[in-house]
Write a protein that binds this DNA or RNA. Structure first.
Lengths: 169, 169
DNA sequence: TTTAAGTTTCAGAAAATACTGAAAATATAG
DNA sequence: CTATATTTTCAGTATTTTCTGAAACTTAAA
């Protein structure tokens, strides 16, 4: 096995392990890594062979990755099988992940907080007011963070991060 | 059960469910939520009773929350049992979570990328150069994002977010 | 059509993760 | 020191998540 192939394999394996920490499953992370470092689009069978996973597993995770927007199907002329390639633009990858996290993590959290804030709004006891204040503060923050992420992730390109770094100094 | 108690219970249950999405376990999320809305510190037994979980489970998750810095032990005079209270300052909570995520998610990712970048540095083939470029770009981005988070989370208070929002508009 | 290639689904198996309960360890009071 | 209260640990169990493999389904060539 060439040095290059070794490095790729290592990357794919390690990225898969990281996926777990992140809360996305190992296979999905590995497929994403594999396509990220593949110079050409791969078929389901390529992926099954490369990662030693079943067809069902490969298929499910490919569809999930497509639905995230992290990879896309490509049609190669004269080929029956579907091929897949990864989005390779770092900034776009970031935007996709940021949006997905917002959708799956912070928006539901904000919704829960908002519900509780509304339900405690009319209560008069000191303890209830305390609760209301606490949850309002959390929600206000989450909402603000959400809107920042949304704006950041809607930019076409990140000329932005260096500017933010400047505001911070 | 009072309306207030219902709201709290609902918050605790929903926050626990959200925890799963987030990759932190249900019990840990529920204990954190419970302490966040509790006006006074609680003992392990209080928590076991309130959430119907075992002593082992409560103990383990309390220790984890303490190690994150999201809750702390407090000593009440004349009491033998340990009591726990949550950090209630929203900005501090955010800083803790941001640091922990950086430590557990982005730093390991950056390390993996850096390794692969280094190992592919000396290779000469076109494909190897492509790999090197791709992974370098990812790592550069992750590193920048990391340093932004570090700076944001090291501020004493968030007078910051509104400023960032301004840069974005 | 019919036939074969390719894709999707899903029930059951395997693996990973979280939880319980009780024993061991530690701390405090008397 | 002894007795008792409290905390911690951990082996075994339960639950959740992920994966496999084969059958059902879809598509397109012949």
């Amino acid at each position: 096995m060439s040095e290059l192939a070794k490095i790729k394999d290592n990357f794919v394996a390690q990225w898969g392990a990281l996926g777990s920490q992140w809360g996305i499953n190992r296979t999905m992370a590995m497929i994403h890594a594999l396509l990220l470092v593949s110079p050409n689009p791969l078929t389901t069978d390529d992926i099954m062979a490369e990662l030693s996973v079943s067809r069902g597993n490969a298929n499910t995770n490919l569809r999930d990755l497509v639905s995230w927007g992290l990879i896309r199907q490509v049609i190669l002329k004269g080929e029956r099988k579907d091929h897949y390639e990864a989005e390779k633009d770092t900034w776009k990858i970031f935007c996709i992940v940021a949006r997905e996290r917002k959708r799956r993590e912070t928006e539901p959290a904000s919704q829960v907080l908002k519900d509780c804030v509304d339900r405690s709004k009319h209560l008069k006891t000191a303890e209830a007011k305390e609760l209301h204040k606490q949850l309002s503060s959390l929600n206000e923050f989450v909402t603000l963070a959400n809107s920042i992420m949304e704006k950041v992730a809607s930019k076409e390109k990140s000329s932005l991060l260096p500017k933010i770094l400047k505001v911070l100094s």
